[in-house]
C-alpha cells in the first residue's frame, strides 16, 4: 500500500520530469492545459462520429461497411496479436524524418525565394514544375533511380512535400514587415540575430500552416511509398489487408494512425500555436 510519502514523491518526480521536458521548450501550463482541454473536446466529437458510424453500419448491415465496434476490435486484435505497433512505429519514424527534412529545406528555399527577387526568378519555373509533378511519378522515379531502399522512400516523400512548403514560406517572406527590419538595422543587430529575432518570428504563422498541411500530406505519401516499395509500415500492412479484402483491417490501421496524428496535433502543434499567438503575431 502506498504511503502519503510515496504519493508525494511520485507527484514530485512527475513534476520534475515535466519541468525537465518542457522548461526549455514550452511552459508546462500551456502544454498540459491546452492539450487536455483540446483532447477532451476532440474525444467528444470522435465519440459522436463513432455513434453515427455505428448507426449507419447497423442500418446498411453490409460486410463492405464494418461497424465502429468491429474496427475497434480489429485494432485490439492487431495490437495484441499482429504487428500494428511495429508498423505504426516504422511509419511514424518515416513521417518524422521526412517532415523534418522537408520543413528545413522548404523554409530555407522559401526564405531565399521570398527575400531575393533574382533567386525567385531563377527558380520559379522549377518550383511550378515540382508542384505539378504527380506524387506517384516522383515515388516511382526515386525507387528506379535509387533502388528499393529507405533513403529512396524518404527522398520521394521529401521531393513531394518541399515545393508546397516553399510556396507558403515564400509568400510569408514577401510580406515581412520592413519597418521592423529597419529597427534591427538601426540598432546594428547581427544578421543572425536579425534573422532569429525579427525575421523568423514573422514567418511563424506561415511555418505553422505549412507544418500542419505538411504532416497530413506527408503521412499519406509515406503510405503510398510503403505500399509500393517497403516491407514494413502502415502502407505495407494496408497492402496486405487489401490482398485479403479485409476492409475492417484497412479501417483499423487508418483509424490507429489518425489517432496518433491527432495526439501529435494536441501535444505539439496546439501548444506551439498558443505560444506564438501570445505575442499577437497572428493579430
Amino acid at each position: 500500500m502506498k504511503t502519503l510519502h510515496d504519493v508525494s514523491l511520485h507527484v514530485a518526480s512527475k513534476s520534475v520530469m515535466k519541468k525537465l521536458l518542457f522548461a526549455r521548450v514550452l511552459p508546462v501550463s500551456l502544454v498540459t492545459h491546452e492539450a487536455t482541454s483540446w483532447l477532451f473536446s476532440r474525444l467528444v466529437k470522435l465519440l459522436a462520429v463513432g455513434i453515427i458510424w455505428q448507426t449507419i453500419a447497423w442500418l446498411v448491415a453490409s460486410p463492405d461497411f464494418p461497424s465502429c465496434i468491429a474496427v475497434l476490435s480489429s485494432i485490439h486484435f492487431h495490437i495484441t496479436q499482429g504487428e500494428m505497433l511495429l508498423n505504426l512505429w516504422v511509419t511514424l519514424k518515416r513521417v518524422a524524418v521526412s517532415f523534418v527534412i522537408s520543413m528545413l529545406l522548404g523554409v530555407l528555399i522559401g526564405v531565399l525565394m521570398g527575400t531575393y527577387t533574382r533567386f525567385n526568378k531563377l527558380t520559379d519555373t522549377a518550383l511550378i514544375i515540382a508542384l505539378n509533378v504527380p506524387a506517384l511519378v516522383t515515388i516511382l522515379l526515386c525507387y528506379i533511380w535509387f533502388g528499393l531502399v529507405e533513403s529512396a522512400a524518404i527522398a520521394a516523400v521529401v521531393l513531394n512535400k518541399v515545393p508546397t512548403v516553399v510556396v507558403m514560406i515564400r509568400e510569408g517572406a514577401r510580406v515581412v514587415d520592413s519597418d521592423l527590419l529597419a529597427v534591427a538595422k538601426v540598432y546594428r543587430l547581427s544578421p543572425w540575430r536579425t534573422f532569429l529575432k525579427v525575421f523568423l518570428p514573422q514567418l511563424y504563422p506561415f511555418i505553422m500552416a505549412s507544418a500542419r498541411s505538411g504532416l497530413s500530406l506527408i503521412w499519406k505519401i509515406v503510405l503510398v511509398v510503403e505500399l509500393l516499395g517497403r516491407s514494413d509500415g502502415v502502407g505495407f500492412a494496408l497492402n496486405t489487408q487489401f490482398q485479403y479484402f479485409d476492409i475492417t483491417g484497412i479501417l483499423a490501421y487508418t483509424c490507429a494512425f489518425i489517432s496518433i496524428i491527432l495526439c501529435v496535433e494536441a501535444v505539439v502543434f496546439r501548444p506551439i500555436d498558443k505560444l506564438i499567438a501570445r505575442g499577437g503575431v497572428r493579430g
Binding site: 519597418d179 521592423l180 529597427v183 538595422k185 546594428r188 543587430l189 525579427v198 505575442g279 499577437g280 503575431v281
Partner: peptide
Amino acid sequence: TQTSTRIGYIFQQPRLMPWLTVEQNLTLV
C-alpha cells in the same frame, strides 16, 4: 552601418516587436 552602434532612432510608429515582451524588446538592442 556595421560598426557604428550609438545611434538611437524613435520612429513615427513605435515599431516594437509584437512577439517580444517589453523587456525582450529592450534586450534585443
